[in-house]
């Protein structure tokens, strides 16, 4: 645990010069969507007819965007950046010559991305409050779910990057992951409209993948929805399961990538 702390400290120190920029850009992205889609497209949406269960469209979209942005962070940080750290950057390759183990390194790596999503989610609460969206005190828990949504993507995708590096493969799969997996997931995440609107097959794909669970849980914590306690726990369990399985896989692939 102390070693994990030193890993986070190391990562924090590396990023401290750009941390403010990270926070600003982490807020600007979702804020743009909040304005463009929540307000812009929202003006064209008949909320009563759409049966979204909220007063305004922006109340529906706003919370969901927190989880969707966390997913994007979790995915993008796990690709080129992770591969570079495993290959030529001095941070990971040298860290495993200390008492830190490769498994601890992976846990530190994934949780660090989760921590950044936590910061991003917390900062994003500001525009949410400015738009008058939060209805429940549990809103303060939403950034933690955003962090878990980020790790549910960061752990498995970083594990894949570790595999790619350990096999000496090129990174040609990375843009494919973003275009063919993450972008569709963003669109079919339930952030913009209920996934029940999707064709049945796509709806079930959305239910199996983690982002919808993050979106539903974050929304349920911020505004009044029909989400039950058990339903909330189920969403949480799915996010924990993706994170956990990703960690098990990543501990193996990082070990191979850093030590053959």
């Amino acid at each position: 645990m102390t070693l994990l702390f030193h890993f986070w400290e190391h990562q924090f120190w590396r990023l401290r010069s750009s941390f403010r920029a990270t926070i600003v850009s982490g807020m600007v992205g979702p804020l743009m969507y909040l304005l463009g889609i929540g307000i812009g497209i929202g003006s064209q949406v008949d909320v009563q007819a759409a049966d979204l269960g909220t007063g305004r469209y922006v109340d529906y979209v706003g919370p969901g965007l927190m989880a969707a942005a966390a997913m994007q962070l979790g995915a993008t940080e796990s690709l080129w950046d992770t591969a570079a750290s495993l290959k030529w950057r001095g941070n990971y390759v040298s860290a495993v010559t200390t008492p830190l183990s490769t498994a601890q390194l992976f846990v530190g790596h994934a949780s660090w991305i989760g921590f950044r999503a936590l910061i991003g989610g917390t900062v994003y609460l500001v525009p949410l409050v400015l738009f008058g969206i939060p209805e429940r005190p549990t809103t303060v828990l939403a950034p933690f779910v955003a962090a878990l949504t980020a790790t549910a993507f960061a752990a498995p995708i970083s594990a894949w990057s570790g595999h790619v590096v350990s096999k000496g493969q090129t990174e040609q799969s990375f843009p494919m992951i973003l275009r063919l997996v993450i972008l569709p997931m963003y669109l079919f995440s339930g952030a913009f409209y209920p996934i029940e609107q999707l064709p049945l097959l796509l709806e079930w794909v959305a239910r199996v993948l983690p982002v919808w669970h993050g979106v539903e849980l974050v929304r349920g914590l911020i505004i009044d929805t029909d989400l039950s306690f058990i339903g909330g726990l189920t969403h949480l369990a799915v996010l924990v399961a993706y994170t956990g399985l990703g960690m098990l896989a990543g501990a193996r692939t990082f070990t191979k990538a850093l030590g053959t």
């Binding site: 890993f7 120190w13 590396r14 010069s17 950057r89 001095g90 200390t98 008492p99």
Partner: peptide
């Protein structure tokens, strides 16, 4: 390979490594 951390200064490279 030196595997130095380009994001850190010279002295920070030693300090943060030493913390482990």
């Amino acid at each position: 390979e030196n595997n130095l951390d380009d994001e850190l200064s010279v002295v920070e490279n030693i300090i943060l490594y030493g913390r482990y």
